[in-house]
Nucleic acid binder design. Structure first.
Lengths: 148, 148
DNA sequence: TGTACGAATGATAATCGTTCTTATTTGCAT
DNA sequence: ATGCAAATAAGAACGATTATCATTCGTACA
């Protein structure tokens, strides 16, 4: 477990809540978690964290570059581990599962378009909302609130 | 003024608040308005509408296909007239002005990617957040809350 | 042209995700 | 060990949005 170094190098004290949150993202089945998701999972694991702390920690991790924040439809922020390579998202409308993809052509065209309009891209988000074409959606249907 | 027909054909009674909101979108300088924007502008015009009504009407118009809703960063929904042709958005980080664009290559690649992953696209949103490359941002700086 | 009835409205309470406040606890350098 | 700044938990506060409900309005029909 090399997490304490992650935190230190990010200029953050190595505290229990922070370690737990980081651990959750590194070991959870779902890559994409909302604050509420993180909070509930920690409570279920017997941890005693406050919701406010979860929000604070997630924001700090985002600023430290450990996590990436996404705004899918539905009003709540969703976070995932920052593993360097940028990617876009396709959200299954049946089960809310998130698939990641990266397309060089799309990225390149975005640069071209922005340049043509006189802008320098700082960030972008491309979300595709789609239906599975398979007869039975292979993604496990979620009973709880969508996690994205 | 052919608005009453718009409403009728959408299965909506032609009421004063609805006419006023539609009129605002058709005549406002800004294409992109939030619920709060609409509410304030109507109040400034001397109309006596309730905020709840504005939210209700905007949602109905979205469902009727008269308006399109966008979720830019910042937590609030922004609406614009639905004029048929889909387009994506580039948001100026200096002034929050929204520029629209459409790129066939990007659209095509999205289809390709989705198909390859076994999805049928139902909707998508591409938001580019960028800085103006001109020395002075040509877009009027907003003093009020961002309208996008 | 009036009228009745259901739909639409405005005021306000409630909800949801998130942030702020504050008293208390914790990490860690000394 | 000890002190102090930083971090925490609990809950209040917040902004955007939705729900509730009594009142008003639009319109089909007499």
């Amino acid at each position: 477990m090399h997490q304490p170094e992650h935190l230190k190098s990010a200029g953050l004290k190595s505290t229990l809540p922070r370690l737990k949150v980081l651990d959750l993202f590194e070991n959870s089945k779902e890559r994409h978690l909302s604050a509420e998701d993180v909070y509930k999972q920690l409570l279920n694991s017997g941890e005693d964290v406050g919701l406010a702390t979860v929000y604070r920690v997630l924001t700090q991790f985002e600023q430290a570059g450990l996590l990436v924040r996404h705004h899918f439809e539905g009003g709540k922020s969703v976070f995932e581990l920052n593993q360097g390579e940028h990617h876009d998202h396709i959200v299954c409308l049946q089960c809310n599962h998130v698939e990641e993809f990266f397309d060089t052509a799309i990225e390149a065209r975005q640069e071209k378009v922005a340049t043509a309009l006189g802008f320098a891209i700082r960030d972008h988000s491309l979300h595709i909302y789609a239906d599975c074409t398979k007869k039975k959606c292979p993604h496990k249907r979620r009973k709880m609130a969508p996690t994205y």
